[in-house]
Simulated assay, not measured.
Amino acid sequence: MNSTTMDMDIGMGIGLTILPILSLLLFLIPFVLVIWYMFKSINLQKERNKILRDISDKLN
């Protein structure tokens, strides 16, 4: 076995190690983005309701 073949074996081993981590990230990133978007939209709705409530109070 020469050094070129050994280098390719090591490279493939690293690639096979990174593959599960990459697939896990591809699953988790959309999940995290959906959760973040939900919290962000809820906070915006709360802020909008507060502003509308203040306007309504001033009109009364």
Score class of each variant (00 low, 15 high):
residue 1 M to W: 08
residue 1 M to H: 04
residue 1 M to A: 12
residue 1 M to S: 11
residue 2 N to Y: 00
residue 2 N to K: 07
residue 2 N to D: 13
residue 3 S to E: 11
residue 3 S to H: 08
residue 3 S to F: 11
residue 4 T to Y: 01
residue 5 T to W: 00
residue 7 D to T: 04
residue 8 M to I: 13
residue 9 D to I: 13
residue 9 D to C: 10
residue 10 I to W: 01
residue 10 I to E: 05
residue 11 G to W: 02
residue 11 G to E: 06
residue 11 G to Q: 06
residue 11 G to D: 09
residue 12 M to L: 11
residue 13 G to S: 05
residue 14 I to W: 00
residue 14 I to V: 14
residue 14 I to D: 00
residue 15 G to H: 01
residue 15 G to W: 00
residue 15 G to Y: 02
residue 16 L to E: 10
residue 17 T to P: 03
residue 18 I to S: 00
residue 18 I to C: 05
residue 18 I to Y: 00
residue 18 I to K: 04
residue 19 L to Q: 07
residue 19 L to W: 06
residue 19 L to M: 10
residue 20 P to V: 02
residue 20 P to S: 01
residue 20 P to N: 00
residue 20 P to A: 01
residue 21 I to F: 06
residue 21 I to E: 02
residue 22 L to A: 14
residue 22 L to S: 12
residue 23 S to I: 15
residue 23 S to Y: 07
residue 24 L to V: 07
residue 24 L to I: 06
residue 25 L to H: 01
residue 26 L to W: 09
residue 26 L to N: 10
residue 26 L to D: 03
residue 27 F to Y: 09
residue 27 F to L: 15
residue 28 L to T: 06
residue 28 L to G: 04
residue 28 L to P: 00
residue 29 I to Y: 02
residue 30 P to W: 05
residue 30 P to H: 02
residue 30 P to N: 04
residue 31 F to D: 05
residue 31 F to C: 10
residue 31 F to K: 14
residue 32 V to D: 04
residue 33 L to S: 12
residue 33 L to M: 08
residue 35 I to N: 04
residue 35 I to G: 01
residue 37 Y to G: 09
residue 37 Y to W: 05
residue 38 M to W: 12
residue 38 M to R: 12
residue 38 M to H: 12
residue 38 M to D: 06
residue 39 F to L: 09
residue 40 K to A: 08
residue 40 K to N: 07
residue 40 K to W: 10
residue 40 K to G: 03
residue 41 S to A: 09
residue 41 S to Y: 03
residue 41 S to G: 00
residue 42 I to H: 08
residue 43 N to D: 10
residue 45 Q to L: 14
residue 46 K to N: 15
residue 46 K to I: 15
residue 47 E to A: 15
residue 47 E to C: 03
residue 49 N to I: 07
residue 49 N to K: 13
residue 49 N to T: 09
residue 50 K to Y: 11
residue 51 I to D: 03
residue 51 I to T: 11
residue 53 R to E: 15
residue 54 D to M: 14
residue 54 D to Q: 14
residue 54 D to C: 09
residue 54 D to K: 10
residue 55 I to G: 04
residue 55 I to Y: 02
residue 56 S to K: 11
residue 56 S to D: 13
residue 57 D to S: 05
residue 58 K to I: 15
residue 58 K to V: 15
residue 59 L to S: 08
residue 59 L to C: 07
residue 59 L to W: 06
residue 59 L to I: 15
residue 59 L to Q: 09
residue 60 N to Q: 12
